[in-house]
């Protein structure tokens, strides 16, 4: 069980030069939890803080406030040098399988280096390292003998991403954070990578945090888990995955869901679908009110003046986990529906 409490991340202002900018609040008090073997999808646009969240979770970046607790141990209570073993059990799967593997080393090398660290800790020998490498590659659906001595450039994108996942498994992780892990992989291979991640959940009890802007992939991974919508570093809606998709109440969630392309011929668009064109570039500046208010077509003066907190949605149809940060929570039907046909795929 990993609990993230009121996580804050502030990037200091950059002064001078062409890239100067004010202080950036990448995360504004994000609280989430991932149960062992659970699945959580985080969706949002680029710049919403989802990548920062994943990197902090994997110990690759520091945080400015809040705390992370692993199995009840608050990492803030540990000295810096003792946190690393905890963070190591949260592994990040990078977006780009083409840069995530060292082009100078064989797959065996990529697997063996982290495994040797484990071997040292567990008093195992080199034979174990080789055996375990093969085991893990087989576990992610690769042919171990055919893959071990290859260099990354000889593998396809899908195969590389499998190797990256196998490498992450060398340290027996509790949680895999997959940051856009399938967006650079060929369409025909994506589903099998998603299946692999789901499979690892079941077989090894590894929790999956799936970070993406592709809502359908998020749904696929977290079908029995939770979906979290992040906007400018803030959780704006959270709940059981299918409930959020079928009955989204936050206008931003509704916009994200509307943006999913409709497979015309197989699906028909939801009746409330709405694609906002205006204000898509205005990320600068923030007033006292709701951060989404400048882009929201339902915003009122209340939204401009006051900031809505994340609260449970007390609707009789909703489950208790459904939270939103909107003054006017109205469920809208925006997602496409499959057209029922006899000769369906």
């Amino acid at each position: 069980m990993i609990e993230v409490r009121k996580l804050e991340k502030v990037y200091p202002p950059v002064v001078g030069g062409l890239l100067s900018h004010n202080e950036v609040r990448a995360l504004r008090g994000v609280s989430l939890s991932i149960s062992d073997g659970g699945a959580l999808s985080i969706i949002g646009e680029s710049g919403c803080g989802k990548t920062t969240f994943g990197r902090i979770l994997a110990g690759l970046e520091s945080y400015s406030g809040g705390d992370i607790a692993m199995d009840g141990i608050a990492l803030n209570s540990l000295p810096n040098n003792e946190r690393q073993p905890y963070f190591r059990r949260i592994q990040l799967i990078h977006q780009d399988p083409y840069t995530a593997l060292n082009p100078s080393h064989t797959i065996l090398h990529a697997m063996a280096v982290p495994l040797r660290i484990q071997a040292k800790l567990q008093k195992k020998n080199d034979d174990w390292v080789l055996k375990r490498s093969k085991e893990l590659l087989a576990m992610v659906g690769l042919d171990p003998v055919g893959t071990l001595y290859k260099y990354p450039h000889a593998l396809s994108g899908g195969q590389r991403q499998r190797v990256v996942i196998a490498r992450a498994l060398t340290v027996d992780p509790k949680v895999l954070v997959a940051d856009e892990a399938v967006s650079m992989i060929d369409v025909s291979m994506r589903l099998s990578i998603l299946n692999l991640l789901s499979d690892l959940r079941v077989r090894l009890g590894i929790g999956i945090v799936f970070i993406t802007h592709d809502v359908a992939a998020a749904r696929y991974i977290a079908k029995d888990g939770a979906l979290c919508v992040l906007y400018r570093g803030e959780v704006v809606e959270y709940g059981q995955t299918d409930e959020i998709i079928v009955r989204p109440v936050h206008p931003y969630t509704q916009a994200m869901l509307s943006a999913m392309p409709v497979l015309r011929g197989l699906e028909e668009a939801g009746p409330d679908r709405y694609i906002p064109l205006e204000g898509m570039d205005d990320f600068e500046g923030e007033g006292p009110g709701c951060l989404f208010a400048p882009r929201c077509r339902h915003a009122t003066t209340l939204c401009q003046e006051q900031h809505p907190d994340l609260v449970p949605w007390d609707d009789r149809l909703s489950s208790s986990s459904h939270h939103h940060a909107c003054f006017y929570p109205i469920p809208r039907n925006v997602v496409a529906r499959p057209i029922n046909r006899e000769n369906a795929l």
Partner: peptide, 23 residues
Amino acid sequence: AILRAIPRLTGDLNRARPLEGSP
């Protein structure tokens, strides 16, 4: 196969089938 390999927002997720092999 490609159409079946795309996860969708609604409908039965178990209908999605990966396409075996590499591009």
